[in-house]
């Protein structure tokens, strides 16, 4: 019995040594490597996950904590993960509200939250753009910025913005003549769900939304800083020019404070249209880059 126990410990040490030689394993602490080994895949964490419901709409199983840790463990033991797997893991690791519930309920006592924080940064440093960075999920990352290298903090954000803008070339080609016909009806038809019956179509160009926007008011030259201003984005929707609508910084710098929608004399759901555009842009750029 004693020999069996000793053999078990020996195999554990060999096992952990193997972990610590892989690219992922080298970047985790010894405690974390032991934690990866301790996971029994009981899925208690997934049953308590605050965003597990997102899996119903975003078909990435690695959103669930139990699947995240399984992937990390695979990586640490030297199993090759495909590029697709790695992207899914990066997305799953970021799609997290950092609520700590998984960590609190883990029966093996694994500090899951700390693992997500660490693995998130390891994956972001690989350089694959993560579009979820352009959402309020980044609030928590911002709170931790003092604990990380400033370049490591900023570069993934810059990469995400650039990759997003790269999908829509017309925003950069300022001198290019834009074809207004045939109208991109498909684009216009897609704008309807949360924006509630395409209210952008009643915009009459009074510019109240732009005037009351605190983000616009923050700049000396808002046009250059933001690409398109709110009223211009409404106009772009009206003309069916998706590139201009998606490629503006304004979309990603929108505070969602709802001042524009509140003040609009025509009842255009300005903020909701911007939300809809963000969702469409996210979906399209992901389809393009994940292929």
């Amino acid at each position: 019995m004693k020999v069996a126990g000793w053999l078990r410990s020996l195999s554990k040490i060999i096992h952990l040594k193997r972990f610590s030689r892989t690219w992922m394993g080298k970047q985790l602490t010894m405690v974390q490597l032991m934690e990866l080994d301790a996971c029994m895949h009981c899925r208690t964490c997934s049953s308590q996950c605050s965003v597990a419901v997102a899996f119903e709409g975003i078909p990435n199983i690695k959103i669930l904590p139990s699947e995240k840790i399984a992937s990390i463990r695979a990586l640490a033991s030297g199993d090759g993960l495909t590029e697709r797997d790695l992207r899914e893991l990066q997305e799953g690791a970021y799609l997290c509200t950092n609520c700590y519930r998984c960590t609190v309920v883990c029966p093996a006592g694994i500090d899951l939250q700390k693992l997500w924080f660490r693995v998130r940064e390891i994956l972001l440093q690989r350089g694959t753009p993560e579009f979820l960075l352009l959402s309020p999920l980044s609030f928590y990352r911002g709170l931790m910025k003092e604990d990380m290298d400033q370049r490591d903090y900023e570069e993934p954000l810059i990469r995400a913005r650039e990759a997003m803008a790269a999908g829509w070339e017309l925003i950069r080609a300022k001198e290019k003549a834009l074809p207004l016909t045939p109208k991109d009806k498909r684009f216009q038809d897609k704008l309807g769900l949360s924006a509630q019956a395409k209210t952008f179509s009643v915009c009459f160009g009074c510019k109240t939304c732009t005037t009351v926007c605190p983000v616009v008011a923050n700049y000396e030259d808002p046009q250059t800083a933001l690409g398109l201003l709110p009223h211009q984005i409404m106009h772009a929707c009206g003309l069916g020019i998706r590139d201009l609508a998606f490629g503006s910084n304004m979309l990603w710098d929108c505070l969602t404070c709802y001042q524009c929608q509140e003040q609009c004399p025509q009842g255009v759901y300005v903020t909701d249209v911007l939300y809809e555009l963000k969702n469409l842009a996210m979906r399209e750029v992901k389809e393009k880059t994940w292929r």
Binding site: V51, C99, L132, F139
Partner: peptide, 22 residues
């Protein structure tokens, strides 16, 4: 109770709605 859906609204409207609705 799960996430109210606020940060998910930036990603997908139906996911946000389902999250809140639950």
């Amino acid at each position: 109770f799960n996430c109210c859906g606020y940060p998910l609204r930036n990603i997908d409207f139906k996911v946000f709605l389902l999250s809140s609705a639950r």
